[in-house]
Amino acid sequence: MLKVTIDNQTIEVEEGTTILQAARLIGGAIVPPAMCYYSKLKDSGGKCRTCLVKVAQGSSRDPRPMPKLVASCRTPVMDGMVVQNITSPEVIETRKAIVEFLLINHPLDCPVCDQAGECDLQNLSYQNGNEETRFEEAKRTFDVIDIGDNVQLHMNRCILCYRCVYTANQLTDKRVHGILYRGDVSEISTYIQTDISNDFSGNIIDVCPVGALTDKTFRFKNRVWFLKPMNASRSCTKCSGKVTAWMRGNEIYRVTGRKDQYGEVEEFICNECRFEKKAVSDWTIESPRNIKRASVISQNHYTRLKNPSVILPLEEKMGKSPYGETKSINDKQS
């Protein structure tokens, strides 16, 4: 086991753990944000540079600090390593700079973007960004291309995290899209305009940190914060069938994978579950999904019962609650 200290909190982790994973094990505010790293995708990470941290002490054997900031998602922990994330002004300053870089060519179309409300870049810029931009030139734009019936590509919004490329590589039997060209004009595109259709291709929507890949069956149907995410399941031959059904009233507006607190899906789901099963009768609705308090999606939906004892005397007076145990709903809420 290796001992690592991140922002003055020490934890023991197994060999091969990265700084980011160790930080996630500690949890809380010290977890560096990640726009391109995705723990379920091999080789992902290292590209967006939002997770850069300062290594103040390389290891107990070689205590020299690392000369540059390192990408925490791709740097393995050494025994005795001391890492500074939010305690280092340099890191905070750098993160601000990276947000600025990511935003200079990102369109300000959040009001019409389906990703708004659950967008990693939105969250990142709220937390780390500047109030105003110093970029005055025209933003770069791309020609619109159609990549099939299910997925809408908005290349202008893409931050080139490569997650969808890794997803297609590692999840489907044949990747038909990738990065064309280079530099700031590089774009996600398909191989000579074929469409992306594969049983698991819909997962590129879930892994996209911004609104570059969105669900065509959900396009402009509703805002995510008006919907209630519910854990739902069905027996599916292709995938686990465990999904999040986004409901309003008694209607399912869209189906996605179940995302954890870092925005990563617990299990990838198939296209049939995602795009075709939109009737409530297709699904067993299990329970409301836990959403971070900070998220706009949780607004006015649920409140965590921090101290169930307030309820208990009520229960005594009123008898058993018809809704079952209140606690269980929010067990995993963060």
Partner: peptide, 21 residues
């Protein structure tokens, strides 16, 4: 440098073009 940036990581991809502008 703007023309030759590979576009993989954000500071170089966005920054080189910005400096050129």
């Amino acid at each position: 440098y703007h023309h030759e940036s590979c576009g993989q990581c954000s500071p170089c991809r966005e920054g080189t073009g910005w400096m050129e502008n």
